[in-house]
Design a protein around this nucleic acid. Structure first.
Length: 660
DNA sequence: GGCTACAGG
């Protein structure tokens, strides 16, 4: 077994450059490594560094990922390769699951969690090396982490110098080595410039060649189906991976493929369409990972979940139509949009994992180059209030002068500062408010939800609000299978409250919790899990969302208790709770207009109640909502009916500072 | 009359 692992490790492209890599890390405080998926950089480099003595004096090597799943699988693999138990020398730490111990030296974690560690230890002094992996994805936490580490590295060097000057050997501070890993060579230049001309090294990745083909123009779904059949009828055996934008498109392409198959002669019908995306139950998804029946070719229709989060075996052909569904934010309207945009992925490499492959891009080469540079980092198209609150919490007060890799627009920053001020997180001169701002910065929640907890503490309904924000923080707690949508809606009526979604969520959570407590006493943990999943299925509740909400509830309850909040309940006084909702979300209120549509009070936009809201068919005069999003219409989601008079009280409550 | 790409704390 160990022999086999050793052979596999030696066969990885990165193995041949171990010596060179170690030399470069020793020579450079910041190093940029470009290498595609499959180069082995994520699992091998930390082991090289460990063997080269970078963990002396009990220091750790931190490897940070944008996603949990990557941190967990890499840690497990490395533990196996080192032949140690997970949690000993090698471990991972993610939000609800920490396997590290005092003997852990290689620690895999997520970008966001590492940022939280910096709240407690601003110098991240237990690490000798920090590796930021998949930096090309440019997620918000990655961007913030890259900026934080730049500054932190200087602070660490300064602390080392001061220590040697004063002869103070009491506190152990050593310089920090920083390694940025990216799959895209284009970004290497950006990172290199950002870190003052840092050295970039290229590691060869792809194990087999992938031929990339372009079309003359950006094509439509019809051309997509033609391409699938062209591959099926003309190319050698091997499965096909097709990137689509969402559930609707996956279903329509699935149907088109089925229809065309029926018109083919019997012997050419051996094509098996399969679909995968995050919202579909996992039993159905397992078929995607199984090999196709003998003589068949799988065509796997996926959303961008397959770009990074899962690996499907057997793929030799990738079809990339060049579109993605992306969330953007308009700060002037406080509204999110959800649009299909042109997009060029990096995933041609997925076709070359098991043999030579082909990638069919349904757009021109010239368009691909344009797409590559027009893909904006997330930080330039999101609501910044959370980012800014986090930065303030980390001690960065000057947001306009903050050293972002890509600076968000001034108007987006202004809007977020104003919002945080209105929420009572910032003082009139935009410093963290004491204590509310500091408390909000410590909570792993949207600032709007953190504010709701701070207020609920005063309204005596903290218990209710903890449940509410835990549920609001997860992806929809209800599950609406397409084929049983009406049945699901009827079932939901059992929980539904005439007051709105927040009270509905409260009763789902409480009822599930009661049931959980009931079965817990008489069943093993595995059985409880199974029974809960069954309960969820019957009640059309998304079981993974519910689990996530329960974890979140426990975590944030712990945090507010440590802040000294007293978790009290308003019992049956739902008026108290609704008044607290109104006070918390007064910035997001909407009023019914003559024609039955609603007017969002802050932006003046005409909006509609989202079909998934329990208030969809009723027409309350005034509501507060949590989300304003434009898809086919401008929709408000997660609503509660309120008395418009409460809003006046809320805004004067918010302004109390001006009178005291 | 109609709806949820994917992540993270």
């Amino acid at each position: 077994m160990m022999q086999k692992i050793a052979e596999h490790r030696k066969s990885l492209p990165i193995a041949s450059v171990e010596k060179r890599l170690i030399e470069e890390v020793k020579k450079n405080d910041i190093l940029i490594i470009v290498g595609e998926t499959g180069s082995g950089k994520t699992t091998q480099l930390p082991q090289f560094l460990f063997n080269a003595g970078f963990c002396r004096e009990g220091k750790m090597i931190g490897i940070s990922q944008p996603r949990c799943i990557a941190a967990v699988t890499a840690a497990k693999k490395v533990a196996e390769e080192c032949d140690v138990q997970l949690g000993q020398r090698v471990g991972y730490s993610i939000r609800f699951d920490n396997t590290t111990s005092s003997s852990t030296r290689l620690k895999y974690t997520t970008d966001d969690l590492l940022l939280r560690e910096a709240l407690v230890d601003p110098l991240l002094s237990s690490y000798s090396v920090i590796i930021v992996d998949e930096a090309h994805e440019r997620t918000v936490p990655t961007d913030i982490l890259l900026a934080l580490l730049k500054r932190l590295q200087l602070d660490r060097s300064k602390a080392v110098n001061e220590r040697s000057e004063t002869g103070n050997k009491g506190r152990k501070v050593s310089p920090l080595k920083l390694i940025i890993m990216s799959a895209a060579s284009l970004d290497a230049r950006v990172f290199s410039e950002y870190y003052g001309g840092a050295k970039a090294l290229h590691v060869i990745g792809r194990r087999f060649p992938v031929e990339i083909l372009y079309t003359v123009h950006h094509e439509t779904d019809a051309a997509l189906v033609i391409t699938i059949f062209q591959i099926h009828l003309e190319e050698e055996p091997g499965d096909i991976l097709v990137f689509l934008t969402g559930e609707d498109e996956i279903e329509s392409v699935e149907r088109l493929v089925q229809e065309r198959l029926e018109h083919l002669p019997e012997e050419e019908r051996k094509l098996l369409p399969l679909a995968i995306f995050s919202a579909r139950p996992s039993e159905q998804q397992m078929r995607v990972f199984a090999p196709a029946p003998i003589g068949f070719r799988k065509v796997v229709l996926v959303t961008n979940i397959a770009e990074t989060s899962i690996a499907i075996p057997g793929i030799r052909y990738v079809v990339d139509p060049g579109w993605v569904k992306a969330r953007s934010y308009d700060p002037s309207k406080g509204m999110e949009t959800f649009d299909v945009l042109p997009f060029g992925f990096y995933f041609s490499g997925l076709a070359g994992r098991e043999g030579p492959g082909k990638c069919f891009r349904l757009y021109s080469h010239r368009e691909f180059e344009k797409l590559e540079d027009s893909t904006k980092p997330e930080i330039k198209r999101c609501n910044l209030s959370n980012v800014i609150l986090k930065l303030k919490g980390l001690g960065y007060d000057d947001i306009f002068g903050f050293d972002f890799i890509d600076k968000p627009s001034r108007s987006a920053i202004v809007k977020a500062l104003a919002e945080l001020h209105l929420l009572g997180a910032l003082t009139d001169d935009y410093k963290l408010e004491e204590p509310a701002g500091h408390q909000m910065a410590r909570l792993p929640l949207d600032p709007l939800y953190s504010r709701a907890l701070v207020l609920a503490n005063q309204f005596n309904c903290l218990e209710e609000m903890l449940i509410t924000v835990a549920v609001l923080s997860v992806e929809s707690i209800f599950f609406y299978p397409r084929e049983k949508r009406e049945e699901a809606r009827t079932s939901r009526n059992h929980f539904a409250s005439v007051e709105g979604d927040h009270l509905t969520y409260l009763s789902v959570y409480r009822e599930s919790n009661e049931f959980f407590e009931q079965i817990k006493a008489e069943n093993s943990e595995a059985e409880v899990d199974k029974i809960m999943r069954e309960w969820c299925k019957v009640n059309f509740v998304n079981s993974s969302s519910l689990k996530h909400a329960r974890h979140t509830y426990r975590q944030i309850r712990g945090i507010v208790e440590r802040m000294g909040f007293n978790v009290s309940s308003c019992g049956n006084d739902m008026l108290e709770y609704r008044r607290c909702l109104a006070a918390s979300f007064f910035l997001k209120a909407a009023q019914r207009q003559m024609d039955g549509t609603y007017r969002a009070l802050e932006s003046g936009e005409t909006v509609h109640i989202h079909p998934t809201s329990v208030l969809f068919r009723s027409n309350p005069e005034c509501v507060i909502f949590n989300e304003l999003m434009q898809t086919s219409k401008k929709y408000i989601k997660n609503l509660t009916r309120i008395d418009p008079l409460w809003l006046a009280v809320s805004s004067s409550l918010q302004n109390r500072n001006h009178f005291s």
